[in-house]
Simulated scan of single mutants.
Amino acid sequence: MTRLRLALAAAIFALIAAPAAAQETPRWSFAIHGGAGVIERASLTPEQDAAYRAALHRALEAGQTILADGGSALDAIQAAIQVMEDDPLFNAGRGAVFTAEGRNELDAAVMDGATLNAGSVAGLTTTRHPIGAARAVMEQSPHVMLIGPGADSFAASVGLEQVDPSFFFTERRWRGLETALRAQNLPIPPRPAGAPGPQAANDLPQPPLNERKFGTVGAVALDQQGRLAAGTSTGGMTAKRWGRVGDVPVIGAGTYASNADGCAVSATGSGEYFIRATVARDICVSTRGGATAQAAAETEIADVGSIGGDGGVIVMGRDGAPAFAMNTSGMYRGAVSSSAPAQVAIYGDEDLQP
């Protein structure tokens, strides 16, 4: 009888202890975006739709691999964004849009929510991975933001890969520039030195040339140590002039992370409005005040819309629940966590289940 009581007690203890043990298991969560805008089913062929979804899955896998192995949120973000910077489907890195002068000028930012350290770069033309440059500014310089040739020079000085500017060239972005300049009655610059001829274009599958999408890629993460981080990278706006810089490298506008506030944010959209509304920081202020990540994201995007801006955000809460909000018809996006498989979506009416 005593043995039976001991066995029953052991069984009851195991049942009680099991949930507690499960709760102690470290969690991680990861979410990405690849730009928001007028992205509708009628505008993408089945092949183009499939290509974007496959690209999003590759980026998610890069981040997931690091987080599942106990790596940092910052490492996961950099790995995923570098995948997208190298993919000509996205407007970041190779595949970035052109300025009115016919150059690719690249911006990026990263922020560590655990320390509030941040780094950003703007107007890069030779650094292969702008997100890597932004992280180097954060970790290897006394500064937060570097711009132009100086930013490229710094990136080279810390060993980041440099490329000829023609590396970033894609034919569909060049043709998009020509269309935009004609519409504004502006001169079309010569093709960049080293760029292939039009007959050499092979960056398929090519979305329609009139695709209206705000080209930014980004990621937010919560790692197993409970650290939040955010990163964003972009080629900016087609036919931008006068050294225009958008919200991406402006900490608190397009990128922000704070463990104390309980959120990490990466934005994509009409940058001028996101700067005016200090979108990313405002979302984190709301979560600090008790709002859920989803509620804070939706409220802020509504505010952006009220002043004339379009776009979207991804937000990671301290509980690992990702949030997505947009006032456009679509946003390339995806999420994965220790408790949910990788999922991706494109159109506004698609849901990503937690």
Score class of each variant (00 low, 15 high):
Leu209Asp: 15
Ser266Thr: 07
Gly197Glu: 15
Gly243Ile: 14
Asp223Ile: 05
Pro208His: 09
Ile251Trp: 02
Ala200Tyr: 00
Ser286Ile: 00
Gln206Ser: 15
Arg227Met: 09
Cys284Leu: 05
Gly235His: 03
Ile275Met: 13
Ala291Arg: 15
Gly226Pro: 11
Gly197Gln: 15
Gly197Ile: 05
Gly254Trp: 07
Ala221Lys: 06
Ser258Gly: 06
Pro249Asn: 06
Arg244Cys: 02
Pro249Ile: 02
Ala239Met: 10
Thr278Asn: 14
Asn210Met: 11
Gly226Lys: 10
Gly262Val: 05
Asp203Ser: 09
Gly289Met: 10
Ser233Glu: 08
Tyr256Trp: 11
Ser270Asn: 08
Pro198His: 13
Glu211Met: 15
Arg281Ser: 10
Gly262Ile: 05
Gly254Asp: 02
Gly236Arg: 03
Thr238Met: 10
Thr278Gln: 14
Ala239Tyr: 06
Gly197Tyr: 08
Ser270Asp: 14
Arg288Asn: 07
Gly236His: 05
Phe274Val: 04
Gly246Cys: 02
Gly269Ile: 03
Ile251Leu: 12
Asn259Ser: 09
Ala291Met: 10
Met237Leu: 15
Thr234Asp: 07
Gly236Ser: 04
Glu272Tyr: 11
Asp247Leu: 06
Cys263Val: 00
Asn210Asp: 15
Tyr273Met: 08
Phe274Met: 04
Gln225Ser: 13
Thr232Trp: 02
Ser270Glu: 15
Arg244His: 14
Met237Arg: 08
Gln199Val: 08
Asn202Ile: 06
Gly235Met: 06
Gln224Thr: 07
Cys284His: 10
Arg227Asp: 12
Thr268Glu: 13
Gly262Cys: 06
Thr234Pro: 01
Ser286Phe: 02
Leu209Gln: 14
Thr234Leu: 06
Thr232Cys: 10
Ile283Arg: 06
Ser266Val: 12
Pro208Ser: 12
Val265His: 01
Gly197Cys: 09
Ser258Asp: 13
Val245Phe: 00
Arg227Cys: 09
Gly243Phe: 07
Thr232Arg: 07
Gln224Ser: 06
Ser270Tyr: 05
Phe274Thr: 02
Ser286Arg: 15
Pro205Arg: 02
Gly269Arg: 01
Arg276Phe: 05
Gln225Asn: 11
Gly290Asp: 09
Asp261Cys: 09
Val220Gly: 05
Arg227Tyr: 13
Thr234Met: 04
Asp247His: 13
Asn259Asp: 15
Gly231Thr: 07
Gly215His: 02
Gly254Tyr: 08
Gly254Thr: 06
Gly252Trp: 04
Arg244Gln: 13
Thr292Asn: 09
Ala221Cys: 09
Ala291Asn: 12
Thr268Trp: 03
Gly290Cys: 04
Ala267Cys: 15
Pro208Met: 11
Ala291Trp: 10
Pro207Phe: 12
Thr238Cys: 09
Leu222Gly: 03
Ala221Glu: 04
Arg276His: 12
Ile251His: 02
Ala195Leu: 08
Asp247Ala: 04
Ala253His: 03
Ser270Thr: 14
Ser258Val: 00
Val248Phe: 00
Gln225Met: 11
Thr234Ser: 14
Gln224Leu: 06
Gly271Val: 06
Thr232Leu: 11
Gly271Tyr: 08
Ile251Gln: 05
Gln294Arg: 13
Val285His: 13
Ala195Met: 12
Lys213His: 04
Ala229Cys: 08
Ala260Pro: 00
Phe214Arg: 12
Ala201Gly: 15
Thr278Pro: 01
Leu204Arg: 14
Pro249Leu: 03
Ala257Thr: 06
Gly231His: 03
Glu272Cys: 03
Gln225His: 14
Pro196Trp: 10
Asp203Glu: 15
Asp261Lys: 13
Arg288Phe: 01
Tyr273Thr: 04
Pro198Lys: 13
